Computed example of a mutant assay.
Amino acid sequence: MSKGVIFDMDGVLVESEEFYYQRRIRFFEEKGIVPGSDNLLDHVGKTDRGIWEMLIPHDSHLRQALHKEYKTYREAHPIDYPDVLRKEVPEVLGALKEQNIKVGLASSSARKEINQMLSATGLAPAFDYVLSGEELKESKPNPEIYLKTASALGCADYLAVEDSVLGIRSAKAAGLYTVALKQSYPVDQSESDIVITDLRTLLNMI
């Protein structure tokens, strides 16, 4: 039976969620604007569009203007992907390849961010298929991102690896066995099938 593993990116492969959150909050503080939410958990697992609709919920013109400014701010304050890459990721991805297991990446992040992470860490060859939520009409918790990734990989059986509530719901709605990677901050992962503390545990589950 052919098997596939589909990974989320932020919070799973890279410990980036807190960096992204802190960068947005600093931007709003420097602009002297109160964001729609300064709760970390409200920022986790959403697409870029979803995050900005939350940050500026009632003024689309201000949202568009700030978002444009933030793109410049983000370029000036980049994340160091190799620094936030979980140390066990290369080992785990390499072991999956050795077992001829198809590997997919299904992330709510923008395609540009995904490509930057893959390039900076050298992980691009490890993935058989990569999909960004911004390329879909609806991203997580809609199951489309997982359904499309699973279809592209063409396996008989799948395992999804997630961290956020929205991501877990997306994978479960797609009918995938869903593993949640425990985070350093409190997040409800009770809807997953199992919670693990180290990605290497996956190698005993395949």
Rank of each mutant, 00 (worst) to 15 (best):
T201E: 14
I145R: 04
Q22W: 11
G36L: 08
P141V: 12
R49H: 14
E15F: 13
V103K: 01
L41T: 15
E113H: 14
V5D: 00
D188T: 10
G133K: 02
D163T: 07
V92I: 04
E138C: 09
K148I: 10
D83T: 14
L131A: 08
S139P: 02
G4Q: 04
L176H: 07
L118K: 03
V14T: 14
I194R: 08
N100I: 06
S2F: 11
R74G: 04
H77V: 09
I196L: 02
Y73T: 06
P57L: 08
P143L: 02
V34W: 11
P78H: 12
R200N: 07
Q183T: 08
F7E: 06
T178A: 00
G167C: 08
E144W: 11
S190F: 10
G167T: 09
Q64C: 05
S107N: 06
T121Q: 10
A150C: 09
S192I: 07
L153M: 02
V92E: 00
L166E: 12
E135D: 15
F127H: 05
P90W: 02
P82A: 05
A124G: 04
L166Y: 15
S119F: 13
V165S: 05
K140W: 01
P78Q: 13
L136P: 00
V84C: 07
V12D: 03
I56G: 00
D80E: 12
L55E: 04
A173F: 10
H58E: 15
R63Y: 13
H61T: 15
V195N: 09
V84S: 03
L93T: 08
P90V: 06
K102N: 02
K97A: 14
D128T: 01
K112A: 14
D8W: 01
S37N: 05
Y20H: 15
D83L: 14
E113M: 12
L181T: 04
G122Y: 10
T121D: 09
H77M: 08
V103S: 02
S151C: 11
M117E: 07
N115W: 12
V165P: 01
P143W: 09
K102T: 07
R74P: 00
P82T: 04
F27L: 11
D193K: 08
E138L: 14
